[in-house]
Amino acid sequence: MVEIYGIKNCNTVKKALDWLAEHEISYTFHDFKKEPAREEKLTEWSKKVSWEQLVNKKGTTWRKLSKEEQDNVKDFSSGIQILLQHNSMIKRPIIEYNDLILLGFDDNVYLSTLKLPH
């Protein structure tokens, strides 16, 4: 089963959800606006991808932080804490499939990883 985490109105999340629907892959969607990410989940993900990859430094939320706040995000602990405070800063979507974690949307990666038999 595919688990997908993100924010419904995020364009990248929409692309991923559309792709899953188009390829008839069933999934469970977890909306950070309704189900904020928990520390345990962020820690679990960071064992498979680095905590740095989880922090979306290209997004609006990151840019709204002060320079001091940005500079204080320098290790696992501070990275997880900022993500707990600002779930919208988590790179999206996050897809869990089997033992894999996929970040963002990439058609080729999805095709090679998620193409399941119907």
Rank of each mutant, 00 (worst) to 15 (best):
I4Q: 01
I4P: 07
G6M: 01
G6Y: 04
G6R: 00
K8W: 11
N9A: 09
N9W: 11
T12M: 00
T12C: 04
K14V: 03
K15F: 02
L20E: 02
E22H: 13
E22F: 15
E22P: 05
E24F: 12
S26Q: 15
Y27S: 06
T28H: 14
T28K: 13
T28I: 14
D31Y: 04
F32N: 04
F32A: 00
P36C: 07
P36Y: 08
R38L: 15
E39L: 07
E40P: 01
L42V: 00
L42K: 00
E44N: 12
W45T: 07
K48C: 00
K48N: 05
V49N: 03
V49T: 09
Q53H: 11
Q53Y: 12
V55P: 04
W62R: 05
L65H: 03
S66R: 06
K74G: 08
K74N: 11
D75E: 05
S77W: 10
S77D: 15
I80A: 03
I82V: 10
L84M: 03
I90S: 00
I90L: 06
K91D: 04
R92M: 12
P93Q: 03
I94F: 07
Y97P: 03
I101Q: 00
F105R: 00
D107V: 15
L111M: 14
S112V: 15
S112C: 15
T113S: 11
L114F: 01
K115C: 15
K115G: 12
L116K: 13
L116N: 14
H118K: 14
